[in-house]
Design a protein around this nucleic acid. Structure first.
Lengths: 293, 293
DNA sequence: CTGTTAGCGCTTTCAA
DNA sequence: TTGAAAGCGCTAACAG
């Protein structure tokens, strides 16, 4: 019967059911391998349960995030996974009010919703402790726009570790803020970073760290002898960098799978579902850029 | 009226119109920055014309490609951009028969359809000529599954350049075939590559080249003194590699924008539309890995 | 020029 | 057990 070219019309199904059997995922930066790995995890889990995936990138711009959420709402996706640019999204709230579950990814959500995150405070502390243990005393913290929650917590973790070591964060840590967490921005900020006279640089993610690394080498700075460098995420390219990059690993694919699984549970068994906020543990991967073993 | 939470139901619109105002893009590997850059180009162009984008990755698996195409067909997307895994896709044909335009991306399509590609033969020749010019005489060509058209043409370009230089491809070029064009596969194949006793390695893309680079360095091979290395795509991470990577640059974002623009033209002005197959020109970017300047 | 209606394809409900 | 019908929200065509 259907062997000759019949293809289900899911628009009709979505209209009838009030929602489609697709999920939406909005990430901060599709060009960042951390998020593509996360997306893979989501896609795996969604596909296994018969759901499609609409993948969007906000490029860290709140307006783009809102536009994508609107698009997903118009498409009547069954649920949304959101790696948020800023704290409160009007449209995310609206989605939830409409009955569309929204799971916060890679950042702690409020209670009353599901979220999947990594202990960013701990991650920041891991990086800083490692640097302090290896004798560094002036850390430049290179981060992005302040709205992004997880980077703020990494900064707190750094301060915490500095304090724990009996030092004063205000003399040890200098913050350099980039317009975006991208390689080019990191590369462009190298002069600003060096102006803080650091003996160590911690970047809010690996993409930035690789841009910074290129700038440091171009400026004739020896990594790690003059300046130690630590990234975040442990993307694949960290290991093949000019100086292999020490990084704080996050279980990207697991994050994605877990988030999708929570979302699908909420979607398919709303009454049995209890909101959860699992927090994963980051792990320091020491390579040459920090002068470690 | 609509200020209080009204959101258009695009499922209803799609049902009514017979198709949705979204485009589908199926790439070979979403983890490859070349394709994310291409996707950005597509997204820019689509968004500018009020179209959404459904982004899928086949991971170079024909079955996944077909599944994604089926999903897009079920969603009744207005058109599809496809970076094909294998030559003929039953479902792509079916889509066209149904009246959904399909534009082939990053590979030459057949006449009678639109496609956007880069002169891969020329790209292969650029890489090989550069290596021959700098004295290399045994080239290992590291490629992926044979179904992928563009890599086959790059191989032909290499042979062509070797012949043009008055040498015999069968003595100069050795082919190593990977199960997938991914970093891990390249890394795992280093022993096989070295077994061909090459003085130069050309990889079908940069992701593979970076994996190979890591393996070569781990094996104590000096790049470029013992072995020159050339990648393909010129992704951002090529410049920050352990040994900055010589690569054949492809204009990824332009490819995406052009492809989307052709698709949208076919979609919105079917009678005025004439099929075109623009071919972009690749460019050799020489860095240290090939021992060039 | 404004307002009403029919129907897209699917699912669910209810009748035969 | 099998089949018919209603209605999801939108738009295009048509009536007033």
């Amino acid at each position: 019967m259907s062997e000759l070219g019949f293809v289900r019309n899911s628009a009709a199904g979505a209209l009838r059911a009030g929602r489609s059997s697709a999920l939406g995922l909005v990430v901060l930066d599709i060009g960042n391998p951390f998020f593509t790995e996360l997306a893979r995890g989501v896609e795996e889990e969604a596909a296994a349960r018969g759901y499609g995936l609409l993948l969007c990138s906000s490029d860290e711009e709140p307006d783009r995030q809102e536009a994508h959420l609107r698009f997903l709402e118009e498409m009547r996706v069954g649920g949304v996974l959101l790696s948020p640019v800023a704290g409160d999204s009007r449209r995310a709230k609206q989605l939830r009010e409409r009955g569309t579950p929204v799971v916060t990814v890679d950042a702690t959500g409020r209670r009353g919703t599901c979220s999947v995150s990594v202990d960013d405070r701990r991650g920041g502390a891991l990086a800083a402790t490692h640097l302090l243990d290896t004798g560094r005393r002036r850390i430049a913290w290179v981060t992005g726009p302040s709205g992004i929650r997880q980077t703020a917590e990494r900064a707190e973790g750094i301060d915490e570790a500095v304090t724990t070591a009996g030092l004063n964060p205000s003399t040890v840590v200098r913050t350099v803020t980039l317009p975006a967490l991208q390689g080019a921005a990191g590369h462009a900020a190298v002069a600003d970073i060096l102006a803080t006279r650091p003996d160590a640089v911690v970047c809010a993610n690996d993409v930035v760290a690789l841009g910074v690394l290129r700038g440091l080498l171009e400026a004739g700075v020896d990594v790690p002898d003059d300046v130690a460098l630590v990234g975040y995420d442990d993307i694949e390219f960290a290991a093949t960098a000019a100086v292999p990059l020490t990084s704080v690993r996050q279980p990207a694919r697991d994050l994605g799978r877990t988030a999708a699984s929570l979302l699908l549970e909420e979607l398919t068994e709303p009454e049995a579902h209890r909101h959860r906020q699992p927090v994963f543990t980051p792990e320091l991967v020491v390579r040459r850029s920090s002068g470690g073993t």
